[in-house]
């Protein structure tokens, strides 16, 4: 349904997105997860044809978005991160204008607008001026506008940012509902949001794709094996290293510039064993640490970010 191939985008010397490729099948709900500033918005803007990539291609329903933007854009419903409506218009007028922009025939406009209004639960504000709406309602109106032309792919960029907790819950529920019969890409920096809505996730950090897969796969990857870095003050013989690796049941051992790297299964136990081993052999332990995986690193950052935000909210 959607295929991005080696997308790269530079702003001057700064590379915002570097060589990102992925493909999304029909009916999939995919979360694009990454901390703030990871390049999510830039990637989505390239998917929607708003931003031309420095290199790479995007195909939507097998239509190249830069060769045939008109046809490709008809397949997309895009909710930008910064929802900017025309504040002086009434909700219904705005949707009517959007329907016209999408090229919906006059005979069908009313029907399409009504169904979008119904789906996004904005019946009670349809005659209200957009300026007077709450942020949550504005988000719903914008969402309704992206549904008008029955797009095959829905792309939502941080749809819950800036909403209050009640609104967030409501919008998430709505998005989940919308994803039932559509292909949907949702970008977010909030881990639970992905867990709640998406089955598949693409993780982006510093402009690069770090991981892609179902949430279960990624969790397994995280809980699995770990590489421990060990360094002794003394020069150790090869037999000692072998002895050590047997002691911690290492799956793999390799030496790197005086440090020993051990691939182990149970990290905590292994650490203990290494420490006792060093004491027994009268070796001075200089370093004992786990090698950071970028995936884990990013999860840690995502969860801490979430916690920080929660704390801020409490205060």
């Amino acid at each position: 349904m959607l295929e991005a191939r080696s997308l790269t985008r530079k702003y001057g010397d700064f590379t915002a997105v570097s060589d990102i490729s992925f493909s999304i099948n029909e009916g999939e709900i995919v979360g694009m997860l990454g901390p703030n500033g990871a390049g999510k918005t830039t990637t989505l803007r390239m998917l929607t044809g708003f931003l031309p990539p420095t290199s790479g291609t995007v195909r939507i329903a097998d239509i190249d978005i830069f060769e045939n933007p008109k046809e490709a854009k008809k397949q997309i419903g895009y909710l930008p991160e910064n929802v900017a409506l025309y504040p002086e218009m009434r909700v219904e007028e705005y949707l009517y204008m959007r329907a016209r922009l999408e090229g919906i025939r006059k005979s069908e406009r009313k029907k399409m607008i009504n169904s979008a209004i119904e789906e996004c639960l904005i019946e009670d504000v349809r005659h209200q001026i957009i300026r007077t709406l709450s942020k949550g309602y504005k988000q719903r109106v914008a969402l309704a506008a992206t549904l008008l032309h029955k797009p095959k792919v829905l792309i939502l960029d941080e749809p819950t940012v800036g909403l209050d907790p009640g609104q967030i819950i409501a919008i998430r529920k709505l998005i989940k509902e919308l994803g039932k019969e559509r292909t949907l890409i949702l970008s977010t920096h909030i881990l639970p949001e992905v867990e709640l809505i998406c089955k598949k996730v693409i993780i982006i950090d510093k402009g690069k794709k770090i991981a892609e897969g179902t949430l279960d796969d990624l969790a397994k990857q995280l809980k699995g094996e770990e590489t421990l870095i060990v360094q002794f003050k003394e020069k150790v013989k090869e037999e000692t290293i072998n002895e050590l690796s047997q002691a911690v049941k290492a799956k793999n051992v390799y030496l790197d510039n005086g440090t020993i790297k051990l691939l182990v299964k149970e990290q905590d136990k292994a650490r203990e064993t290494i420490f006792n081993f060093a004491v027994a052999k009268n070796l001075t332990l200089l370093e004992l640490s786990a090698e950071k995986k970028s995936l884990e690193d990013i999860f840690v950052r995502l969860t801490t970010q979430e916690n920080l935000e929660l704390e801020e909210e409490k205060q």
Partner: peptide, 17 residues
């Protein structure tokens, strides 16, 4: 104004040239 508020993004991602 459209550039300042960001509504230009919405306008140009519809199938308008």
């Amino acid at each position: 104004e459209e550039r300042k508020t960001g509504s230009i993004e919405m306008l140009l991602t519809t199938p308008i040239s």
